[in-house]
Amino acid sequence: MDKKKRTNEWGRHRVQILWAFLSNSYLAGFAKGRIYQGKLKNLCVPGLNCYSCPGALGSCPVGAMQAVVGSWNFKLAFYVAGFLMFIGALTGRFVCGWLCPFGLIQDLLHKIPFLKKINTFPGDRLLRKMKYVIFLVFVLLMPMFVVDLLGQGAPYFCKLICPAGTLEGGLPLVLLNKGMRGAIGWLYAWKNVLLAVILILSVIIYRPFCKYICPLGAVYSLFQPVSVFRYKVDQELCTHCGACAKVCKMQVNPVKTPNHPECIRCGRCTKICPTGALNTNVGKFGK
């Protein structure tokens, strides 16, 4: 198999597109400018998918977490925390690579040719820790403690940062509703600027949102070293050729740390490995 064929990612992209469609298949919402209000919204989807997207059938786990910790009668979110633990411990960051609609958008944008693609830069490693701070501050602490007179906290990550909410919810709803167009202000402008910056950066840097900002990826990454679905290296077959590390867009060396928190399980490394030394515990993957 030639190298081009082994690094072809359209198999994974097809799964991402299918999942993005399935989880946003309330087409009437796009036609009428409203959101789905059925019982499926009780359930969280595994990826970052705004529940105010007109097509969304399920709830965004990050939004759901903020809703519960920010509510006056609950402060601990067992339902959402349990969901994140379940998905994270079962699959690690597989969701980031295969089931997140915003990850798909960044993947596709990165395919656009650009003069110089940036793989890493000084401060890259440190900047990747920022997603943990964002999770702690904007998803947990602020909704919990920065509250109104009734004791209700706002979803600060959604409100101030989330570009997925702007892209999937803000833009279509504002375009489809005349009333909402009259209500937009500085916050809407700020979020659109942020979205534009992230989309432009995605052309140059692979998945900048996932690497530096995403609180959902931060949570899943904590479970990756102990996840049930995992990568393994057969040291006897490995020739240390470095092909896997070279092909990794998240700058992980899978031979050193096959279950590194930054790995999004895209499967490029397992496909490129010439000796089949790098594999998963459920067999060959990513073809």
Partner: peptide, 30 residues
Amino acid sequence: IFMAFGIWRGEMAVVFEKAVNICMECIGIG
């Protein structure tokens, strides 16, 4: 177990309530 406990104490209703109404903060209006 956490999920079951959360559902038992009614957290799912909070998630549902938030998700079936347009979240103005999420879309940058609120």
